[in-house]
Nucleic acid binder design. Structure first.
Length: 467
RNA sequence: GGCGACGUAGCCAAGUGGUAAGGCAGGGGCCUGCAAAGCCCUGAUUCGCGGGUUCGAAUCCCGCCGUCGCCUCCA
């Protein structure tokens, strides 16, 4: 079985082959830190977390770089509004973002570069582009000359000529071509600035990612990820800069773009004001619900966000977790046919799961296989399987759902173990039930429920769990 | 206006040439003192609409309708 990944550049699924055997160089566009992250950012974090987890599951060592854009127009503007130092503001939101990352349970990137710490690399790159004739200097600004790059537009499927017609934005008169973009921007008084051959200034909008890729991963990388909304102009420009600078093609072997999170059919975004912050979400729901919402769809499709869907995701999550419940207390062991079926389903689930994930990370299908395993486990438990008989299948489910999907199936153990007390109560309750003292028995069950402990009676004994 | 996606049961969603996965919700049954959970059974003769190609299409082609994204900072 081999992994295939959809490449935005070729618009096809392609067999995944790394530049260096066993190692994946993966770069994912991180946030511009001028405000708290919303669920759109959360989706992106989770999508690439799941992709990375699966690559690691397959045995790859993943060098995962995620950048912070900590200097740009919005940060400067926001800092001015708040009377705060732009660097301090960026630092504050980086901290907030990393707390979100911890809360969402994503695996930590190998490197998290910041623009302000990469200025040397950026200047070197801009200078190189100017020397090779791909950039030109005007009044301390440096622009990239798209007409010098015959490949320009190949990622987004645009032609430079077409863009002239569609240009709705007022064009900087100093540009040679309307599609030219800034590599370096001369700074105005009071703005953050670094020395450069062209005078004090700061990096343009796209050069940072090219420079950080070069610095931390090399001239060519395996996977570059980001939201679909970054295809143009951001990633298009990144390719132009990197390939013109190094002379090597392709800069990126697999361009991966995740679909947008939609609210009432529109993209969740700051400018539309229809966003929910990660913090607000986590106030109401656990992180796994968002993860589940994504797993049920495909990462390239847009995902609608609404309460009904959240509810469905929550229910599906509970069903998955239900399979991890222990064997019944008085289980006598299941019959051979049931155990054989369980074992067969376990194998089929692993195989189906891997085949689905190998097919461009088809999590919805992979999840379907997990649910098949859930049914087999529940069936075996009902048939009286012992803990030892359930264990292998449950461990398989746990491994796939937790290690690869990043979900949490088993509740955290709480300090101050209450198990002996609950069990004592259940023993008493069992005697009451035998004596047909149902009113009292129900009082115990209701009382425990109020304390967050669910009691369930089965033919093979009563079990309890935290709600 | 240009570029690119998408439209599958009440809802979410997979499937891109061989006769419709999975989840949620609903209905019926089993189990239970009741409940919860679980298990079993149950749902599209049909995949936005209209043509065409094919022995055969949700899957390919053409047209139409609708939705969304990008073309400007954006995960």
């Amino acid at each position: 079985m081999s992994l295939r990944i959809y490449n935005t550049l070729t618009r096809r699924k392609e067999p995944f082959q790394t530049l260096e055997p066993g190692v994946v160089r993966m770069y994912v566009c991180g946030p511009t830190v001028y405000d708290n992250a919303h669920l759109g950012h959360g989706v992106s974090l989770l999508v690439y977390d799941i992709i990375r987890r699966y690559l690691e599951y397959k045995g790859y060592q993943v060098r995962h770089v995620m950048n912070y854009t900590d200097v740009d127009d919005k940060i400067i503007q926001r800092a001015r509004e708040l009377g705060e130092d732009p660097q301090a503001l960026a630092e504050r939101y980086i901290q907030a973002f990393e707390q979100n990352m911890r809360d969402l349970g994503v695996r930590w990137p190998t490197v998290q570069p910041r623009v302000t710490r990469e200025i040397d690399w950026i200047v070197r790159m801009v200078q190189g582009l100017v020397e090779k004739g791909f950039g030109y200097v005007v009044d301390g600004d440096v622009f990239f000359d798209v007409s010098k790059d015959p490949d320009y537009g190949k990622l987004s499927g645009r032609k430079v000529e077409d863009m002239l017609a569609g240009a709705r934005v007022e064009v900087d008169e100093r540009k040679r071509h309307p599609a030219d973009f800034a590599l370096w921007k001369a700074s105005k008084p009071g703005e953050p600035a670094w020395e450069s051959p062209w005078g004090p200034g700061r990096p343009g909008w796209h050069i940072e990612c090219s420079a950080m890729n070069l610095h931390h991963l090399g001239e060519q990388i395996d996977i570059h990820g980001g939201g679909r909304d970054l295809i143009f102009p951001h990633h298009e420009n990144e390719i132009a800069q990197s390939e013109c600078y190094t002379g090597k093609t392709p800069f990126v072997r697999y361009w991966v773009h995740n679909g947008m999170l939609l609210v009432r059919g529109e993209k969740m975004s700051k400018s539309l004001g229809n966003f929910i912050t990660v913090n607000d979400f986590l106030q109401q729901h656990e992180a796994d619900v968002l993860r589940m919402l994504l797993l049920q769809a495909h990462y390239r499709s847009p995902i609608n966000y609404d309460d009904a869907r959240l509810q469905q995701a929550q229910q599906a999550l509970e069903r998955l977790r239900g399979a991890m419940r222990p064997a019944y207390p008085e289980a006598q062991g299941a019959d051979a046919a049931t155990l054989q079926a369980l074992e067969a389903e376990q194998r089929a689930a692993v195989q189906g799961f891997e085949a689905a994930m190998d097919d461009d990370f088809n999590t919805a299908v992979a999840l379907g296989h997990l649910f098949n395993l859930v049914r087999a486990i529940n069936r075996a438990r009902d048939a009286g399987a012992t803990a030892a008989q359930l264990a292998p299948a449950q461990e398989t489910l746990r491994r796939l759902a937790e290690d690869v999907f990043g979900l949490h199936l088993t509740p955290e153990t709480v300090t101050g173990d209450i198990a002996p007390l609950v069990e004592l109560l259940l023993e008493v309750r069992q005697e009451l039930r035998r004596a047909r003292q149902y009113a009292l028995a129900d009082r115990i069950r209701d009382g425990l429920a109020a304390l967050g402990i669910v009691v369930e009676d089965t033919p093979q004994g009563s079990v309890w769990r935290r709600a």
